[in-house]
Design a protein around this nucleic acid. Structure first.
Lengths: 226, 226
DNA sequence: TTTAAATGTTACAATTTTGTTACAAATTAA
DNA sequence: TTAATTTGTAACAAAATTGTAACATTTAAA
């Protein structure tokens, strides 16, 4: 799965067209026909990106966007605004209210797709499906497989998520807290030392014999790839 | 200062207009008139965002962008493409090559500004690699690494914090009390002489053989870089 | 020059941090 | 269900870091 996209748009034909095409491209899609419903559904659906119509029967897209930005859970939710208005003034208003990109109807699906990818690549590298590479290591997010120097490495689920996390920003040093935040589900509580054990397991799997160490320990700070 | 923006654009009038307005808005701006110069300057300037013209005398904007994405240092550099071509196909090509946003000439400065803000808002919290530099010394806060003259120097945690502290205001002389306040955790109590020992350790690490002394002792006052 | 204060240097024990292993509980597959 | 895998934590080992004392050297003032 590529990522979850929510659509708030009052024209069913557009929803149908976009939803159908997005699903063909591996996205999970849900939608609402008006602003108030949309805001409710949003919380349930927890999307990775929101497509938002400018003109809606109840709330305007701008109002919804401002609303969303106030909610801590959606502060960083990428939003692409869809609208029939092409006037420059409106674009500025939209971008200033926290919208990430802006698309004028009528638009081609290809352009929408390209913009979605661009926004997702920036905001949530995890949801854009491509392979992560670093040095002689390759992680395939789609097939959930990892290779080093062409040879496949078997990883447990946590080891995989851990490596995936490091690969989104190799070389960057992450504290144990940051690792916990990003690699473990939001509600679980695990000791910070647990990470050390998983690092050890990951190292054991990844450091095929006579290969150089890939994981760097930064004393009193955390870990990074190297 | 708001951030650093680099412009690669072959039309001087546009550079002048954009640069002037950006500077009025608190940005630090530099530019090149062609692709090859631009790629070189980029490394020196280390911008937070790149404005890139589609058509250039030597390389195309697309080529430059792909080039940049291959360079580990600029993998995450936000890019906004400027172009006279408004055709949809081109937009798709641009966004797919790793561009973050796209602006068709002629554009108003206000719209450009709004898009810059939108892109920076999204990209900056992620990975702004802020490096501290002084003389031939470079400290990377993200990767927690220090280089002198290109060669890596291994530092212990306290040595690192100490150097980081000095680098935020090189040349300024800090008293031992000030150093304690800023470099040690708020509650610990250590002898002021302890600092001397850490200074000694830092000196030993940083003064690679036959390199000139970097840390100056200011008798009865404290220490500083020099 | 002599003296006192400030800083440099070294060694080392105590502490902190990380590595490693084993194992029981939890989860998943068969 | 049973068997296999995965997971979190405790316990101990190993390693790195830290603070301080003790002594050496430099500096500035008398």
């Amino acid at each position: 799965m590529n990522g979850k996209i929510f659509i708030i748009e009052d024209e069913p034909s557009i929803i149908q067209l976009v939803q159908h095409n997005l699903e063909k491209n591996g996205f999970l899609v849900s939608s609402s026909l008006n602003g108030n419903d949309g805001l409710k559904e949003l919380k349930k659906f927890q999307p990775d990106l929101l497509l938002l119509d400018w003109m809606l029967p109840d709330l305007s897209g701008i109002e919804i966007c401002k609303n969303i930005r106030k909610d801590n859970n959606f502060k960083n939710l990428p939003v692409i605004m869809l609208t029939a208005k092409g006037e420059e003034e409106d674009k500025i208003k939209g971008l200033d209210s926290g919208v990430d990109d802006y698309l004028t109807k009528p638009f081609s699906f290809n352009e929408l797709m390209a913009r979605i990818k661009a926004v997702l690549r920036r905001s949530n590298p995890n949801t854009v499906s491509d392979n992560l590479k670093f040095d002689d290591l390759m992680l395939d997010r789609i097939e959930k497989r990892v290779f080093r120097d062409g040879q496949e490495i078997k990883l447990g689920p946590t080891e995989f998520r851990l490596l995936e996390f490091f690969l989104t920003n190799p070389k960057r040093v992450y504290s144990r807290d940051q690792i916990l935040e990003s690699v473990w589900p939001n509600n679980v509580n695990v000791e910070s030392r647990t990470i050390d054990v998983h690092i050890r397991r990951l190292r054991q799997s990844v450091n095929l014999k006579n290969k150089k160490e890939l994981i760097r320990t930064v004393r009193s700070s955390g870990y990074s790839l190297i």
